[in-house]
Design a protein around this nucleic acid. Structure first.
Lengths: 240, 240
DNA sequence: GTTGATCGTTACCAAATGGTTACTGGTAGG
DNA sequence: CCTACCAGTAACCATTTGGTAACGATCAAC
C-alpha cells in the first residue's frame, strides 16, 4: 500500500479534520467528555450514522478516545486524546473567526429572542446567565430555587431548563416533573446540567440529565447548546 | 430567503473555508498574488472546473480578489483580500500541524529523493537551496550561472529549474532553451522564479516564467511546489 | 488560416458524502 | 408480555461534490 501523497501540509491536516462535522465534533469535545446522545442533540442536523462514522474516523486517527461502559442502557463516552488536544488551537481559531464574522443575527443574538429559560442556579451563576442570555440576547431568564421550580414548573413552562450542579440538591424529582410535563405537551423540555467536575457530572447523569456543559462555560458554547436543543424539533428555520 | 443557521461558530467558518481545496488555495495565496494557471500547477489533482468554482466562491465570500488583465493571452490574478488575510492564522496553524504530524516520509523528505534540481541563483540563495533541498531531502542540486546554464542545459537535463530573480539578467534565452529542450523529450521542464518584489515578478512573467514564489520562501512551500510540479505528469504515486 | 496560449464555460458523468428508515440487544419498569 | 432506553447497524436512497471532455473567446505568431 503506497501512502497518500500531499502537495502541501494543509492537505494532510484536511485529511484528518476535513468534512462537514469533524471540526464541530472536536469543538464540542474540547471542554470535556461527551456521550453519543449528547453529541447528537448538540449537533442538530447530523444523523446517527454520520455521527458514528465521523467519530470512528476520528478515533482511528487517534484524535479522540472512545470508552464503552458495560451498563444498560449502554453508555459510550468520547473525549479528546492528547493528540487531539494538539488540534485545539485550530478549532479555537475557527470558533473565534466564526464569532467575529458571522452576521450577529444568525448566530447568537437572534437565536434566543422569545425563548423562556428556567435557571436553577446559585445567585452568582444566575446573574451571569441573565447577563449573557437575557440582556445580551433577549431571552427571558427566570431563576428559581429547586423547591419552587418543582411547584411551578407547569405554570412557567419554559423552553429549556438550566441546572447549576454546584447546588448540592437532589434533582431526581425535577427529572420526574419534566417527564410528566413532557407527556402532556409532546415535546420534551430539554435540560442542561452546568457542572464543575466529574463528580457533579456523574451526579447529573445518574439523575437523568445527560446533557451537560463544563464550567466555566463559554458563552458561544452555552448559546449554541440552547439554540440547538430548543430548535431540534422544529427545523423550519433552516434554509439557503 | 431565510438565512442559514449555525449551531456553533465553527459551522459558519466551515461554510466559508470547508471543502477539499479552499484552505489549500488560501495557503498558496497567502504569500502573494497568483494567477489561475499557476494555482492549477501548484495543486495537482484539482481540475479546471473545480478550481474555477472554488475561486468564485471564495471571491463571493469576499476572501479573495480577482483581477482580470485585458491582455492576450488573458491573465487573471487572485490574491487574498484584507478579509481573507484574517483567515491566515488558521491556514498557518493547519500548515504547522500538518508539518508536525504528517509522517515525514510522505511530505518533504521522500518527495525529492532522486530529483535533479538546477538552480540559477546568488551564492547565498544557492547555499540555502542546497541545505534545504539537497542535504535535508536528498535532492541533487546543481548551481550554475545563467551563461553556463544556457550552454549545458541539455547535458544537465534537470527535473526542474529554480531561477533567482534577484540576479538581474535576461532569462528570455533560458526560456527559449527550455522550450526547445521540451520539444525533444515531450515533458516540459518546469521552472520556478524566486522573486522578492512585484517588479521582479513582472519581469519573470514577461520572460515566460509565470510560476513564482515570493522570498523569503518557506521550505514547505518550496518543497511542495517542487514536488507538485515534478510529479504533475506521472501521478502513479497516488494511492490509498 | 491555422495554431497556440490563457482562462474560462457547458454538458455530462462518477464518486463521495450525507440522510432515512427500520432493526438489534440486553435489561428495567409496568 | 410489552415498552422504553441507548448506541449502535444495515440497507437503501438523495445530495453534494468533484472530474472529464469538449468548446469558446481573443489576439499574436507562423
Amino acid at each position: 500500500m503506497v501512502e497518500k501523497q500531499y502537495g502541501c501540509p494543509v492537505e494532510f491536516t484536511l485529511d484528518k479534520i476535513g468534512g462537514k462535522w469533524k471540526c464541530v465534533i472536536l469543538w464540542w469535545l474540547r471542554r470535556g467528555t461527551k456521550r453519543f446522545g449528547e453529541l447528537m442533540q448538540l449537533m442538530p442536523g447530523i444523523s446517527r450514522k454520520v455521527l458514528t462514522t465521523q467519530l470512528r474516523e476520528l478515533e482511528a486517527d487517534g484524535l479522540i478516545g472512545r470508552q464503552v461502559f458495560q451498563e444498560t442502557p449502554p453508555r459510550v463516552e468520547y473525549s479528546l486524546t492528547a493528540f487531539g488536544e494538539t488540534l485545539r488551537p485550530i478549532t479555537e481559531l475557527m470558533c473565534d473567526w466564526g464569532k467575529a464574522n458571522a452576521p450577529q443575527f444568525q448566530f447568537g443574538l437572534m437565536c434566543l429572542r422569545g425563548l423562556h429559560i428556567l435557571a436553577i442556579a446559585t445567585p452568582l451563576t444566575s446573574q451571569r446567565l441573565e447577563a449573557e442570555l437575557g440582556e445580551l440576547r433577549g431571552a427571558k431568564v427566570t431563576t428559581v430555587s429547586l423547591a419552587i421550580a418543582l411547584n411551578t414548573l407547569n405554570q412557567i413552562c419554559p423552553n429549556i431548563v438550566l441546572i447549576d450542579y454546584s447546588i448540592d440538591e437532589d434533582f431526581d424529582l425535577l427529572h420526574e416533573s419534566l417527564k410528566t410535563l413532557t407527556a402532556d405537551s409532546q415535546k420534551p423540555i430539554p435540560a442542561v446540567a452546568l457542572i464543575a467536575n466529574d463528580q457533579e457530572r456523574d451526579r447529573a447523569i445518574s439523575q437523568g440529565f445527560p446533557i451537560h456543559l463544563m464550567e466555566p462555560v463559554e458563552t458561544s458554547e452555552l448559546v449554541g447548546a440552547i439554540a440547538n436543543l430548543t430548535s431540534a424539533e422544529d427545523m423550519e428555520g433552516y434554509a439557503e
